[in-house]
Structure formats: structure tokens, C-alpha cells
């Protein structure tokens, strides 16, 4: 019984959901149990030989490797590099996407003229630019930034366009009739409407940016966790590789949680919870 009440209906207050009365665990505990079970499975599979320990070391050994890795300074440097590539890339993408979105969204001619170009450029897989990045920027941070920015700018831009389009015509007319300046209109009418969309765009971009940052390190070899994984793989340090993969997962969780928290914080005043604009 998982049906969620979507609208307040006329029926009585108690929720007509038949509770499971089996004395089941509360949900957070159940989730914890799930994690423990996963660790257990990862421990048992290689130990019993179902999966070769050469491919999948027992979880305890991965955990050991994780502790070992965490003791090395190079790991923290790699983590910092990854955070840098992600952070700068995301910041640039959000800046560019917001600016362009506001500009294109508010000027009808621009919106029409750019539509076909955006439709064409957006689906180009950013990794297609990998060889170009290598040629032009080598294996430095700039390569990572090129890929991250290209990939992360689209969600922000598209959400922003949808947000600006969503401005209530009545509000716009009201602002015009009170002779708001262009700036005041932007500040008090367009921006508040577009903000929820922007936050959705930022949340999507944040995880895309992380994926691209780590991918470019993995393929191009610019410094960061991705490069460390490639190194561990080529030197057949399997436990270490798994440990680093877990680190990237943890990073991903942090990014997702932080992005959602930010979204909630910024939109606390906003009555409606936005669904993602279908673009």
C-alpha cells in the first residue's frame, strides 16, 4: 500500500492506508539495515568464492584500503583537485546559464533565434569534446573545466528559460503599468518566478558536473580522484580502486544532499514545490 494522497479529498482525516501491523522496523532503521546487508553481501560473495576475490575483494579489505588511502596526502590532494574542478566548473556554468537564460528568455527575438541552435547543441555528448580538450589544454584543470562547463550549463540554461517563460502575464502587465524600470521588473517579477526553476537547474547541474569532472580525470588524466582510480586500475590495486569508487559515490551523495538542502533553503518561502520543467 504505497498510494500517496495527492489532493485533499473529502474523506475523513485518518488516512485510509492499511498499516502493516507486523511490528516492522521504522523506515530509517530499515534503510540502515539495507546498507549493512549490502556490506554483508559484498563480504560474503568473495569469501565463499561465488565471485573471485581478484575481481571483488571482501568488503572488509576494501574498508582497510579505504583507511589506508585516507592516510595518504595524495588522496586528499586528489579530492581537493576534484572539488576544485567541480566547484569552478559548476560556478561558471551556473553564472553563464543564468545570465544567458535571463537574457534570451526576456527577449522574444533572441528566444526564437536561438531555439534551433540550442536544440542542436544540447544533445551533443560533452565527452565528444575530450580530444579537443586534450589538444588545446593538455591534462590540466582547464580540460576538466571545459567538459564540466559544457555539460553543466544546459540544465541551468534550459530551466532558466522555462522559468522566465513562466512569469505570470498579469504580474508582468502590472509591473509595466506601474512603470517599473527594466531592472525592477527583472528583480521583482522575473527573478522570483524563475528562482525555483533555477534551483532545479543547479541541482541537476551539480551532479552532472561531478560526473564530468571525474570522467575527465579518468580519461584525460587531469589530477583528481578519477585519475587515482585509473592509476589503481592500471597497477592492479583492486582494493584501492574499490575504495576510491566508494569515495566517488560518497562525494556524489554529498553533492546531491547539499544541492537538495540548498534548494529547500532558498525556496523555503515558495509555496509550491516545483516539478522539473519538461523540456
Amino acid at each position: 500500500m504505497t498510494l500517496q494522497p495527492r489532493r485533499a479529498g473529502p474523506p475523513p482525516a485518518p488516512h485510509p492506508r492499511s498499516r502493516t501491523r507486523t511490528g516492522a522496523l521504522p523506515e530509517p532503521l530499515l534503510g540502515l539495515l539495507g546498507l549493512v546487508l549490502l556490506a554483508g553481501v559484498l563480504e560474503v560473495l568473495p569469501r565463499t568464492g561465488v565471485v573471485s576475490a581478484d575481481y571483488l575483494p571482501p568488503f572488509s579489505e576494501i574498508a582497510d584500503a579505504l583507511v589506508g588511502v585516507a592516510g595518504e596526502e595524495s588522496f586528499w590532494q586528489a579530492l581537493l583537485d576534484t572539488a576544485e574542478g567541480w566547484g569552478y566548473g559548476l560556478a561558471i556554468a551556473v553564472g553563464v546559464g543564468t545570465g544567458l537564460g535571463l537574457l534570451i528568455g526576456s527577449v522574444e527575438v533572441l528566444r526564437r533565434a536561438t531555439a534551433s541552435t540550442i536544440e542542436f547543441l544540447r544533445p551533443i555528448p560533452s565527452v565528444a569534446l575530450v580530444p579537443l580538450a586534450v589538444l588545446v589544454y593538455g591534462t590540466g584543470l582547464e580540460s576538466t573545466l571545459l567538459l564540466v562547463v559544457y555539460a553543466a550549463v544546459w540544465p541551468v540554461l534550459l530551466q532558466m528559460l522555462a522559468g522566465v517563460r513562466d512569469v505570470d502575464p498579469v504580474a508582468r502587465d502590472t509591473a509595466a503599468s506601474y512603470r517599473f524600470t527594466r531592472w525592477a521588473r527583472l528583480r521583482h517579477v522575473t527573478w522570483p518566478t524563475a528562482l525555483p526553476y533555477l534551483m532545479t537547474g543547479v541541482r541537476l547541474s551539480a551532479s552532472v558536473a561531478l560526473i564530468l569532472a571525474i570522467s575527465s580525470q579518468l580519461i584525460i588524466g587531469s589530477p583528481g580522484i578519477g585519475k587515482e582510480i585509473a592509476l589503481a586500475q592500471s597497477s592492479n590495486a583492486v582494493e584501492e580502486m574499490y575504495a576510491l569508487v566508494i569515495v566517488t559515490g560518497a562525494l556524489g551523495v554529498c553533492v546531491n544532499v547539499a544541492a537538495r538542502a540548498l534548494e529547500r533553503r532558498v525556496l523555503a518561502w515558495h509555496t509550491s514545490v516545483r516539478t522539473e520543467a519538461v523540456t
Binding site: 530499515l30 546498507l35 571525474i214 580519461i219 580502486m241 569508487v245 559515490g249 562525494l251 553533492v255
Partner: peptide, 19 residues
Amino acid sequence: LLEPVLEFFRAIPPPVLIP
């Protein structure tokens, strides 16, 4: 039961699965 596990797997950037 599976929500945190899935949340974790989803957060792993897929390219690191290649190695």
C-alpha cells in the same frame, strides 16, 4: 530497505564503473 543503498549507487559517477 533499499533507499540508502540505491541513493549511494546512483551517486557513483557511472564512468568510474568502467575500470
